[in-house]
Design a protein around this nucleic acid. Structure first.
Lengths: 160, 160
DNA sequence: GATGAAAATTCGGACTG
DNA sequence: CAGTCCGAATTTTCATC
């Protein structure tokens, strides 16, 4: 079995890639002070181990007519362990995240649409899912930070 | 002023990059059936227009000791328009998203930590921010979908 | 589209724990 | 010896015309 832990070099590579996913392999090598071939080997290994899952370009939502962000609690009437509602929610266009949450017995989803009219349309689509009982929306006025980059300082990711 | 609207080719390029941000320019060109130079020119233009904001590698949170995702409503006692609390929240390690929300007069933040102990530590840090009144946490049991990729079908991104 | 420069990729061999 | 790194050779891509 392969080692589970990643070392300091892996952390540096991952941090670089999290912040600029399209940087060239040669540039990563320069930054970490290693040969490009060695860096590439590590990246491939991180990918095959499932640590590096993928790469996403970040599109400005406002530029493509998705100015409004909202979080919606979706209360579902399905048996514990059922995942049908979650899968259906995930398929609704504009639904970016679907999380099943403790306590509330419901899903928390993150959506993007053009405006409040678009949100109303989405809520209509969601409300028409058979297992959905009701929804509770929170509209985002202003996003201060939005990232997927996980801090990888050795003190944080590893230490406790 | 440059054109605000993006055309079908831009949408195809953006969709490809959203799903595989590290694909080579030549491969994009093959997929859209254009010359690499033309594709590169479009990508550069999308970047300079602020439509393509950046590129992120996606790291599996569980692989780096961040298995627990939680959403926290943070109630702040600050004047309308003040952004200090939001900025402070954004600086807390493990806080990935900070949204200022309508209605609740509070921030909704998304955090990742190792476990419930780590969450307790984060809540302590957040609670120590002067303007923070109280917090309300929702722990994620299971994430069905999590993406930043915005659907760019012409019907959706453009049509209404 | 062509062309020189740069980068990605492959692979054998060396070094290390 | 398994894992990692280097460096040279080859293929591919990039950037500029």
């Amino acid at each position: 079995m392969s080692k589970r832990k990643i070392d300091e070099t892996d952390r540096r590579i991952l941090t670089i890639l999290q912040n600029s996913g399209r940087i060239s392999n040669a540039d990563i090598a320069r930054k970490v002070g290693m040969a490009p071939s060695a860096v590439l080997e590590r990246v491939r290994k991180l990918e095959s181990k499932g640590i590096l899952v993928g790469y996403e370009a970040i599109v400005d939502p406002k530029s493509v007519g998705r100015s409004l962000t909202a979080f919606i609690y979706v209360n579902a009437s399905e048996g514990v362990g059922a995942t049908k509602t979650g899968a259906e929610l995930a398929n609704v266009p504009g639904v970016l995240e679907v999380h099943y949450c403790a306590g509330r017995d419901s899903y928390l989803i993150k959506v993007r649409c053009e405006d409040t009219d678009g949100l109303a349309i989405m809520l209509g689509i969601i409300g028409r899912i058979e297992t959905v009982r009701d929804t509770n929306s929170t509209i985002v006025l202003n996003t201060i930070k939005e990232s997927r980059a996980i801090p990888l300082g050795e003190d944080i990711g590893d230490g406790f």
